[in-house]
């Protein structure tokens, strides 16, 4: 297990560097006649993510965590700062270099009902990235897709090929989204609240799956969540984001055990707690 990684890493270990990134949205105020920028959605954010770790980005709604993910994925442009993925300068990517960047970094979206194209069969959905990057012939693609789907827990894979998203449950759809994310064998996956729309028993299965992927394929995860408990179970390090700013970064246990920022303290205090058969031993041990 990776222990306290607060200390600065040697650059070789860092897969993603976000430095002083700022993003503000233009708001049109008709009463003023012009357009001007409001307080930034992402305000001077700096994070470093090490290769092979799961890094949690925790924050409430409107804290800017999803915007930051979109900036890293180059779905939107940032106003200032720099993002480096390995040796690529994300802000300057274009054409072929952008396309090869897209092979290395993938995303698992939040809403399994909205993130799959309703007109694509499951096979087409998972194979789409392969088609885009012209990987393999039909036969090879079939094999790669099957592997990705089996890895994601959709077995037997052939049963799902000709189905369509509307015929699957939320958990199955999220597995399809995961299969699509891993089919290109990316080095980095951004998971944006991948379980927030799922029932508890299904989301635990999705967590297990992400855990397996991380372990077996040495994938680095940026895990975005509003749920500190989920981050605690999945991530080695977390950053707490509030109103566009990173207010605290560090090893997960350290932040949860000894929070410094007032917002982090409030967040921990607000977590629902109940004594159940699972933590009774621990509770009594504490007392």
């Amino acid at each position: 297990m990776i222990s306290d990684q607060d200390r600065i890493q040697s650059p070789a270990d860092i897969i993603l560097r976000v430095e002083n990134v700022v993003k503000a949205y233009e708001m049109r105020h008709f009463s003023f006649g012009g357009s001007h920028k409001t307080s930034p959605a992402v305000d001077n954010v700096t994070i470093r993510i090490n290769r092979g770790e799961a890094f949690g980005l925790v924050g409430g709604s409107g804290s800017g965590k999803t915007t930051l993910a979109r900036l890293i994925l180059k779905l939107e442009r940032f106003d200032a700062g720099a993002i480096h993925f390995e040796d690529l300068n994300v802000g300057k990517l274009k054409g072929p270099s952008l396309k090869s960047f897209r092979r290395k970094i993938q995303m698992i979206p939040q809403d399994p009902y909205q993130s799959l194209n309703p007109y694509f069969s499951i096979f087409e959905t998972v194979a789409e990235p392969l088609v885009i990057h012209r990987i393999g012939d039909d036969k090879a693609r079939r094999r790669i897709v099957e592997n990705a789907m089996v890895l994601s827990g959709l077995t037997p894979a052939a049963d799902y090929y000709d189905r369509y998203p509307h015929q699957l449950s939320g958990g199955q759809r999220q597995r399809v989204a995961i299969a699509r994310a891993v089919v290109l064998e990316p080095q980095f996956i951004i998971a944006d609240e991948p379980t927030s729309m799922l029932d508890a028993s299904i989301s635990i299965a999705v967590f297990k799956l992400l855990h397996t992927i991380k372990r077996r394929h040495n994938v680095t995860f940026l895990f975005i969540t509003h749920d500190l408990a989920a981050a605690r179970h999945f991530c080695e390090r977390i950053a707490v984001m509030h109103r566009g700013k990173i207010i605290e970064t560090g090893a997960t246990e350290k932040i949860i055990g000894n929070p410094q920022a007032p917002y982090t303290k409030a967040l921990i205090a607000a977590q629902p707690r109940f004594v159940s058969f699972r933590n009774i031993g621990k509770e009594s041990a504490k007392k």
């Binding site: 994925l73 993938q106 979206p109 909205q114 993130s115 799959l116 194209n117 789409e128 990057h133």
Partner: peptide, 14 residues
């Protein structure tokens, strides 16, 4: 605005 269009972009679609 639908996420599946974003996902197509993330996959590298032209």
């Amino acid at each position: 605005q639908r996420p599946f269009i974003d996902m197509a972009r993330v996959a590298g679609a032209s």
